[in-house]
Design a protein around this nucleic acid. Structure first.
Lengths: 232, 232
DNA sequence: ACGTGGCCTTGACATTTATCAATCGGAGGG
DNA sequence: CCCTCCGATTGATAAATGTCAAGGCCACGT
């Protein structure tokens, strides 16, 4: 294991507070690999053999049932996924695939659990990370159950605008078909939803979105920090 | 603080492995209180002052937005709620109200965080609990996005049947209006959904549900351990 | 330059779900 | 015992969302 490859994750909140020795134990059996786009990294139901960390690129977490499929989240650098399955030594609840060419670090789950048992700082960091993940899913749940598809799209766009630095105009970062799945609707409906937001100050051209009337869109979307703020 | 009042939570997985001294520190500022039904214990957006533990009765976790409201989960004895908010010292994402007369233990959040910082066993227990909570929400998310309301009801009933010991006939444990909210539909639709399941081996009389054709209902519901098993 | 394939869009239609209004029926109080 | 209230149900209707089929657009490779 070249140490250099793990330098970039050493400072992650998850690993920052642990001892060098324990970090070394963690990465001893780990490796970093580059995957092309559209590769399925894990499948739901599989045993959780590795904790995954996205170093570059992006990963789609999705789930299937009865022939249907839905995207649940996108993982961006630098963060982990399926931490909960690793901790509980339980099967993955979601599948994961690369959205683009991505570098992924894989740490054997048993090593994570072993170090977790002996390094209190690491255990605390895991708690913080998990609590964060939990709250994200709860927010997604509220988004889904309390809002219509038009409202979800409007709030999604406002969140994206913030991610893009607040500019009036920005590019969508996902394929629209996947965005539709994330938002819990069909691609056809997403097209109509974009049109449906035009009266509320939105213009779309391909992947470029322009918020022509911020106040009006805000009035329609009614974003709430308890649903839309990533930080809290 | 009468020690007796906390004996029943001492053996919870969350507290079992911690030292007596730390447990004492945890319950020093804690208290137990009995609330009548329909009391709002916490409101979403409030700072997380206390970790709550349901000792008896039951508690509804719900959320509101823009005049709408939805139930997200039910907490039964003996378990905690809003652990994630406590850990992160962040505002509650959900409101909570008693569904019936309930005894609740309240532990000051700052004490939880303080003990969490010095007791590795407690920290590990919190991780396990949080990972469990996280996986529950993910399952709920999959249920919501991958299934129609009829399918959600069918699978809910099969889960309830298992909870009730597997008997062919059992009582619903929630008001139907609340069950509708949990399942993400209106009460009117829930009524129709019950009727819609009759051809698949279901009979309903008030709160009593009878599965007249288990095989047929299973064939329709197609339960999956990755959505419907509480344990995994 | 020209196909070609994939994704997006559009329209027509079907299905699902919500809304509104009215009624039913059981639990509890006078 | 009857009345009243509240939740559950039902029917009619509207709105939201999904499905199917067709066509447009753009990027890609030959």
């Amino acid at each position: 294991m070249p140490d250099s490859a793990f330098g970039e994750i050493r400072d992650l909140p998850l690993f920052a507070a642990m001892t060098d020795a324990n970090f070394a134990a963690l990465v001893r059996g780990a490796y970093v690999q580059t995957f092309p786009a559209q590769i399925e990294l894990i499948a739901e139901g599989d045993p959780s053999d590795f904790l995954h960390i996205v170093l570059s690129g992006s990963v789609d977490l999705f789930a299937s049932w009865n022939g249907r499929e839905t995207s649940l989240a996108t993982v961006r650098p630098i963060s982990t996924f399926i931490l909960a399955a690793t901790v509980r030594d339980a099967p993955y609840l979601m599948s994961a695939r690369t959205l683009e060419k991505s570098r992924i670090a894989l740490i054997p789950s048993q090593d994570v659990r072993a170090v977790f048992d002996i390094d209190a700082n690491f255990a605390r960091a895991v708690v913080t990370e998990l609590a964060q993940c939990y709250r994200s899913v709860v927010k997604a749940q509220k988004d889904l159950k309390l809002r219509t598809s038009l409202e979800r799209l409007a709030n999604y766009l406002l969140r994206q605008q913030r991610r893009a630095g607040g500019a009036v105009s920005f590019e969508l970062e996902h394929e629209k078909r996947r965005l539709a799945s994330v938002l819990g609707m069909t691609p056809e409906n997403l097209s109509r939803a974009f049109k449906g937001l035009q009266p509320y100050g939105l213009a779309v051209d391909g992947a470029r979105v322009t918020i022509t009337d911020q106040a009006e869109l805000l009035r329609f979307a009614r974003p709430s920090p308890l649903i839309d703020d990533a930080a809290t």
